[in-house]
Design a protein around this nucleic acid. Sequence first.
DNA 1: GCAAGTTGCGCAAACGTTTGTATTTTTGCG
DNA 2: CGCAAAAATACAAACGTTTGCGCAACTTGC
Lengths: 335, 335
Amino acid sequence: MQIRPTIVDIARELNLHPSTVSRALTGQGRVGEATKDLVFKKAVELGYNCNQVASSLRKGITDTVGMVVPLINRLFFSNVISGAESVLNPAGYNLVVCQTHDRKEDETRVIRNLLRNQVAGMIVSHSLETTNPELLQTVASNGVALVQFDRAFEDLTGTCVVNDNFGGAYAATKHLLENGYTRIGHLGGEFNANVYADRLAGYKKALEEAGIEYDESIIFDHSISRDKGFYNMAKALEKKCDALYCAGDYAALGVMEYARHNNIRIPEDFGVVGTANEIFAELINPSLTSVEQNARDIGILAAEAFLSMREDKAPVKKKIVVPMKLIVRGSAKRN
Amino acid sequence: MQIRPTIVDIARELNLHPSTVSRALTGQGRVGEATKDLVFKKAVELGYNCNQVASSLRKGITDTVGMVVPLINRLFFSNVISGAESVLNPAGYNLVVCQTHDRKEDETRVIRNLLRNQVAGMIVSHSLETTNPELLQTVASNGVALVQFDRAFEDLTGTCVVNDNFGGAYAATKHLLENGYTRIGHLGGEFNANVYADRLAGYKKALEEAGIEYDESIIFDHSISRDKGFYNMAKALEKKCDALYCAGDYAALGVMEYARHNNIRIPEDFGVVGTANEIFAELINPSLTSVEQNARDIGILAAEAFLSMREDKAPVKKKIVVPMKLIVRGSAKRN
DNA sequence: GCAAGTTGCGCAAACGTTTGTATTTTTGCG
DNA sequence: CGCAAAAATACAAACGTTTGCGCAACTTGC
């Protein structure tokens, strides 16, 4: 464990003042070309590495942005993280990733922690337990650039990046209608969350346009898991459904499993459309038609939004809507 | 954007010295119970939040650990990250996640960056392009706790956490043998990387024990993608193979696709075993027998290794081997 | 040839905390 | 009550950088 050299060491060796060395290295302020060269040479000679911690303290701001997600290893979120990282890291920012396990308590802990670390910004998809944006508002008003994505409180300062869940659900439902299904149910999530509320609304709109009356008895909430899909498929059949639009692919998977076990043919007898376009959607049989979530794009857009907030330093309030694309496969194709 | 209060503000309001406030808040050193209470009360009253940056500068070490992976959104890695985060965050550490895209250049950039940020440790799975552990050795000898996982240079200072790739491949190959397949080929990865070299070795060992001669003409390298699986399945058939052990599930998927297109029945005519136990393995038809990579465990173990290195501060050199489990499904079951 | 401007660099304070040492206050006990 | 020991607090320096200010030296223009 060697001792790491500082600008003071460089300054001493070159008979310069530390401030001059600093200016030479950062390129801020006036320094002669000749001395600039000397400093650079000496820096590599000594193996100098700038101490970002000291720099951050002095500058009052770090080059870190916090990323707060429910669960890192959910494909959607890991794609968002990956996208954001690939923008932020080359731009000189570090991404600190924290997971909330969808618990308010963990969320509070990690956000406090990020604040202590003086992050320049946060990119957040809040936990399902969070119904009150108070803490996030504190973040924003503390001069920390706030970008929310996917699950978002839209009236907070800062930028939101969300999918067009309404449009995606609308397209999915319309696809089912176009394929001749007439009694279409919906497996949804937590309808308090904007994501699922919007999907429900898109579903409703498509039915309305087709002149089909909305029937609450074939709407199932908290139903995005595989188990719930399986379980609620039975209920949907009791209610004479001939198709389901699912707010998640795992639910659609459960639906298809129930169908197989009960000799219901998909898509001939029953139509299914999922949401998220998980990897397995194209691999199962029949392949699953699904609404694509543009996870990576969302990460990139969120990171870019952060960068532009840093630049103009104005407390913006903006909403970016990313279109969702229906990936048509076999699970709801009858003509 | 309000101004954040510091310990100096608290000290001023209570007519104390900042150092006393610091000791009260951190619990280090002797402070009267009464004043300790006063300080805590005032701290919440003012909404005080410790400035970790200043603290880190003074202490010469941060509470950050860097995580360097090829690609964040690959399921294996996101699981490792998630596991590591769930240990480190509650322990008071932050996880900075960086991806190398399997490029040496990116790896060098992110590691330098982490060093500048004075991280307390790094948890690294090096890029495929990295053949020379020089930079990582520098990291370790700079007093940064180094934990390598999955892909690892074993002679470096620090801890390695790796799967028992040898054992996993051995079990997979043996499973094929036990099901009566006799001419078993291997779709491997980059044989320079320890991961793939070990899998090849385990495969060889199982054949050897069964008295089957090793035939290099049915070993395919750089073959862990779906396309390569599809492509090399054709070659394997030309060479009269009746089974393949694949070092990745995507390759196995390609193999199965080729089989379907050519009316080769799995498992009756041809056996396949994959590696990684990706989500789709149980969802496809027939379901894919696969060797499980304990990604989450690896993350947890790596994080714990880091924590214990921090505690004893001794430059350990240790190797932790995580057993791999064969998940038996349908793709190689004949009896 | 001299004022005005420009360039290169040194000086010192500051960012907010921690910590070794010094000083004051309190406590305990004979 | 007095004195030593212990407890509580104050002081000041330090971590490594950045940055406003100022001064000298040099360049430019007329």
